[in-house]
Design a protein around this nucleic acid. Structure first.
Length: 727
DNA sequence: AATATTCCCGTTTTT
DNA sequence: CGGGAATATT
């Protein structure tokens, strides 16, 4: 056993509540930890891992799986602090998948040096696939097809399986695209995010020998955030624990917020059905939040119908009232919050413990601007965005082709970046020649063939071939050094030089990339460039969040899961935003997930929670009036301090527009963004925006039959339609 | 072939 | 409003 002194064991069990101790000391057999927010789940999980290592197994027999790198890193650190010994595996699902596919590539039927294609790459390949099928990308929107394929993969439907399941013409067509997409990806030795899960699930399902080996290696498996697992992840968890059945799942159905990407809340609800002898531990005492925050959150989540009853309670102080603030405009909202931060900061408060959450990334902009103006330091959780920047993708593309010469997507990106006289037509010819010769483009370029078929561009291509010869041997270098080399010899550095010094300019970003690579190398000296690329492909937004920076943290509600802050601001509590509503979807189903999302956000707060909303918000250009989020109305009146005029009857309805009322519909007060309307010739539509000028009211209506039109409301023959009148 | 210009349309959320 | 793509210009 890793460590077994009695003193050590006692130490692992101190300061635990009864249910916590029960979970920690449960060693063999299925265990479900239903952990409410702030219930000390991480503490239980880390102690349990150390406990297992100290009593029944060795550290290297323990596998813990999380959803983000940040979570994995933190879990690793906290377990390490309990010194259970070396060798435990703590990983994200996707990183684990990549690693297993790498090691067992022959069994999995994937190329050994596959590279991971991110969503941008995947989008491009899907577009290619659609075009290859002679379909138009207007009728078959890449984003829609991408989503469909992604959801198929998350339920382990391969292209073949999907084709068999065909039900209608639409699906049959998507099946064709799916197959074309897979063929392209295979050609390029690329795997997408969903492959990392699907292929592992399928591999484990059919290869019992490998399964046995893995089961012997990973005898105790922990899956964190089990409520957010999709079918493939669920399958992996089951397959890894078939014989020993030492699966410990932790999670909270009330915090399931990834249904939209295939997560199945049923996985956690079904746990006791899957394992009849499962031990279930409920952690319901909250150690994080004040009574007021907890009861507000609890009241909100109680509005969900499909849910396991749960009693959250805390011994913590009442704390200050939860605030609900209504502002007139989003600017005002942002500036007011920024001003509060400025005051706190002046009072010497540490803003590391403060966060702003929002439903959609686009809301960060107003807040950022306000914070800059007020001189408040902030950080934004957006690790992914960094790696999506042009210049960064340019650099990475070079490395990708080196690691995986089949990666034509990256090669075509790189071949004329920076511009070196190889234009679109030349590239097209090059691809055609390669195809005719049955060889790869890179092969063609680098093997010194006769390229005269390319006309006068042949020389340029030849030069690129030479350049490539000089670049390609950095493959074994540490990533930072390799990037430095590539950047200077490819001409990228010089190309970006003119803008290089600008704040956040391309040159600076490349420098940042280099130092990130250097950090990586320091932490994992044995890692190859391929490992580094994999690492960059699998970052999440939260991964970029640092603690103790002294600055306010801005992030989406999704990114906030699992974190906690003293002082939390949630903005944009508006109908249609939070809860988010899309126009083509039936509404009831998603509202519960939206409510959970709101619940997640609220329960991040330890001491102070402020929810706010703006009566007018500018989105993509034009300002539109908003409707207060129904979630605000679901909060217990007594616990909430309302600021800025609370309900619908106050102020906004009597702002001087008296003389415009002439031609307006009689029920104009009930019209707002989202209202359904009928037009004599255009049919049923929905108001997308509403603009009240001094004299005229303008509306923007999107019609069910397609199309979008704007009118001056006084002159449009629009009639309001109630939801229940719609067939 | 490279750069300048206009136009179009829209991401919810993320590994 | 702003990025990306189609289109115009040099």
């Amino acid at each position: 056993m890793g460590r077994s002194t009695d003193a050590g064991l006692d130490e692992l069990l101190t300061d635990l509540s009864e249910p916590q101790r029960e979970a920690v000391t449960h060693t063999d057999g299925p265990l479900l930890i239903l952990a409410g927010p702030g219930s000390g789940k991480t503490r239980v999980v880390t102690r349990r891992a150390a406990y297992l290592a100290a009593t029944v197994t060795e550290p290297w027999h323990i596998l813990a799986v999380t959803f983000t790198n940040k979570a994995a890193r933190e879990m690793q650190e906290r377990i390490a602090a309990l010194s259970p010994g070396e060798g435990m595996t703590v990983s994200t699902f996707h990183a684990l998948g990549a690693r297993l596919l790498r090691i067992h590539h022959d069994r999995a039927g994937v190329p050994p040096n596959f590279t991971i294609f991110d969503t941008d790459d995947r989008r491009k390949v899907i577009k290619q696939a659609i075009e290859q099928c002679d379909l138009s990308t207007t009728n078959w929107q890449p984003a829609v097809v991408e989503r469909e394929i992604s959801l198929a993969k998350s339920t382990m439907l391969t292209a073949e399986a999907y084709a068999i399941e065909e039900t209608d013409w639409r699906q049959r067509t998507i099946a064709r695209i799916y197959e074309a997409y897979e063929a392209l990806m295979t050609n390029m030795a690329g795997l997408d995010f969903d492959d990392l899960l699907m292929r592992v699930a399928l591999l484990l399902g059919r290869d019992s020998e490998l399964r046995d080996r893995l089961e012997d290696r990973y005898r105790y498996v922990l899956i964190d955030e089990y409520q957010d697992t999709n079918a493939a992840q669920y399958r992996i968890a089951q397959l890894l624990t078939q014989q020993r059945r030492n699966l410990c799942a932790t999670g909270d159905p009330d915090q399931s917020i990834y249904g939209w990407r295939g997560a199945d809340i049923g996985n956690i609800l079904r746990f006791e059905g899957d394992f009849e002898d499962a031990r279930v531990v409920r952690l319901e005492q909250n150690y994080r939040s004040t009574k007021r925050i907890l009861s507000a959150a609890d009241a909100l989540i109680a509005g969900n119908m499909q849910r396991k009853e749960k009693t959250l309670w805390t011994d913590n102080a009442d704390g200050p009232a939860v605030r609900a603030v209504e502002y007139d405009t989003a600017d005002e909202e942002a500036h007011s919050i920024a001003a509060e931060f400025a005051v706190l900061s002046r009072q010497g408060a540490n803003l590391s413990d403060t966060a702003v959450f929002y439903r959609v990334n686009s809301l960060s902009r107003v807040v950022e601007e306000a914070l800059i103006r007020s001189g408040v330091a902030y950080q934004i959780a957006r690790g992914v965005e960094f790696y999506r920047r042009k210049e960064i993708k340019d650099v990475l593309a070079y490395l990708r082709v080196m690691v995986n010469p089949a990666d034509a997507l990256s090669l075509l990106r790189v071949i004329n970046t920076p511009p070196r006289g190889i234009g679109a037509t030349t590239v097209k010819r090059l691809v055609a020649v390669a195809e005719a010769a049955g060889r790869s483009v890179l092969d063609l370029i680098t093997s010194g063939d006769d390229l005269s078929a390319l006309g006068r561009s042949a020389a340029k291509v030849g030069e690129f071939g030479e350049l490539w010869g000089k670049l390609a041997d950095v493959l074994d270098w540490p990533a930072a050094k390799a990037i430095e080399h590539v950047v200077s010899h490819s001409g990228l550095r010089a190309f970006y030089k003119p803008v290089t010094d600008a704040e956040g300019g391309p040159g600076r970003n490349i420098d940042e990339l280099i130092s990130a690579a250097a950090d990586f190398h320091k932490q994992q000296p044995d890692a190859t460039i391929r490992d580094w690329l994999e690492h960059t492909a699998l970052v999440s937004d939260v991964d970029a969040v640092e603690s103790d920076t002294g600055s306010v943290t801005l992030m989406t509600l999704h990114a906030a899961k699992g974190l906690e802050f003293d002082n939390v601001y949630m903005i944009g509590l508006e109908d249609g935003l939070l809860p988010m509503r899309r126009f083509d979807e039936d509404e009831s189903e998603d509202t519960e997930e939206e409510r959970r999302l709101c619940f997640v956000g609220m329960t991040r707060a330890k001491r102070r929670l402020t929810l706010s909303r703006a009566r007018y918000r500018t989105s993509r250009g034009s300002a539109a009036r908003t409707v207060r989020s129904p979630f605000l109305d679901e909060l217990p009146r007594g616990e909430i301090e309302w600021v800025g005029g609370d309900d619908r009857t106050s102020r906004r309805d009597d702002v001087g527009m008296a003389d415009t009322s002439k031609g307006l519909p009689p029920d104009i007060e009930q019209w707002e963004v989202g209202t359904l309307v009928r037009h004599p010739t255009h049919g049923l539509g929905r108001i997308m925006s509403m603009h009240r000028g001094a004299k005229r009211t303008h509306v923007d209506v999107e019609f069910q039959e397609g199309g979008r039109r704007s009118w001056v409301l006084e002159f449009a023959n629009l009639v309001r339609v109630a939801f229940d009148e719609v067939d």
